[in-house]
Design a protein around this nucleic acid. Structure first.
Lengths: 212, 212
DNA sequence: GGACGCGTTGAACGGGTGTTTAATCTGTGT
DNA sequence: ACACAGATTAAACACCCGTTCAACGCGTCC
């Protein structure tokens, strides 16, 4: 049963969730009928895989540094070749957009907000006008960028070259990201000030949209 | 023939590229056989749709302002309800990652670089150390963020509520983005300087990786 | 020792897919 | 009026899908 689930994770990661039950069954050395007998349906199997991945991520997160956007966490995990299939699975999940993807981005946003708060308290992060919005922005930008990269260049990659590709991705982005974070992009504040003139200060009392 | 192609674009946009030929045929008021007779295969139909979208985008781009990341262009197009299905189609394309998606991101990156150069020349954009890398970073971040948002919250939306959702997305991101662009995120330069100490200056003579 | 339960199989089912084929309809030129 | 070409259709084909079902092997317990 665990072997079936692990084979499913590997297959889903490699070929996406459209892959057939029989292919998974062959990988696990069993029959398609047995798979659905154990997991009820293909969706049940997917749910079991999702649960396992969520548990793994949660466990691994406590062991590793994270910048709240998930990039560092996933990057570190992808470096360790053992975890590469899991990272691929997570990106496939983002690609198809199910419950797991929603939970992950939600959690990344929450983590980002936490890290922003810690950074502000430590005096290394410049406080913003709406921390929640900023956290959402950062996690969406970073996760989405990773997702797009994966869809365009990583989805068809062989599992053994995946860590190398991921490393390249992170390295390519390091300089522009650091530059933007420390120096900004614009020379003067006119655009921001104009925006602030026309829009009421953002965190205006309404603190109700947990996950849009 | 044009009616078939337009129906296919609408269906693809609404339900993704996994939708059956027969559904498209019914929408167009014809038979599945006729579709493949005209376009050779489902893939041929998809290619015809992609070509049409690429032409439309190229045509529309000359008429509208763009920030080089595509966000503004797509946002404006989504506002005009007439174009909402096209925007959905483009996002579906990004989601599945074919030739069109690659071409679009490539073009967005090129546009971004152009706009960065213009901004630097006009004195509103702070020059960076590697303009190409910066352009790639910005276009991937913005496009990817949009893609993730669409996958999580917009893919199942009804076409008539899509423009409103898109508007909300853009508004939610405006403040954190402007803040980051004008003020940066970090208080001091230590992180950037440390990075620059360990990595040779990036545009070190090698100007050969057109689209990674 | 027989009955039960569980893991497991292979074949079948029903449905959906893209594509093919033969026939029909329709219009147009000669 | 006839023939030819293109549009169009309905049916069939071959395949893959997820799921169901009846049977079998095998250990355990009473």
């Amino acid at each position: 049963m665990r072997r079936i689930r692990d084979a499913a994770i590997a297959r889903f990661a490699r070929d996406g969730f459209g892959v057939g039950l029989r292919a998974i069954a062959v990988d696990a050395g069993v029959t398609a009928g047995l798979v659905v007998h154990h997991f009820g349906s293909k969706d049940g199997l997917r749910r079991a895989c999702d649960d396992q991945m969520l548990a793994t991520v949660r466990a691994e997160k406590t062991k590793a540094l994270t910048d709240g956007t998930g990039t560092m966490l996933l990057a570190q995990m992808a470096m360790v070749e053992r975890y590469a299939p899991m990272v691929q699975y997570l990106l496939r999940s983002m690609q198809s957009g199910g419950d797991l993807a929603a939970k992950l981005t939600e959690q990344m946003t929450a983590d980002a907000e936490e890290y922003l708060a810690a950074g502000e308290a430590a005096g290394v992060v410049r406080p913003g006008r709406d921390r929640a919005a900023r956290a959402r922005y950062l996690s969406y930008q970073n996760t989405g960028s990773m997702l797009l990269w994966f869809t365009l260049h990583g989805a068809n990659a062989e599992p053994e070259e995946f860590p190398q590709l991921f490393r390249q991705y992170v390295e390519d982005l390091a300089l522009p990201a650091l530059e933007l974070f420390t120096e900004g992009l614009l020379v003067d504040r006119s655009m921001l000030d104009e925006y602030l003139m026309y829009v009421p200060d953002p965190p205006a009392g309404d603190a109700d949209n947990p996950a849009r």
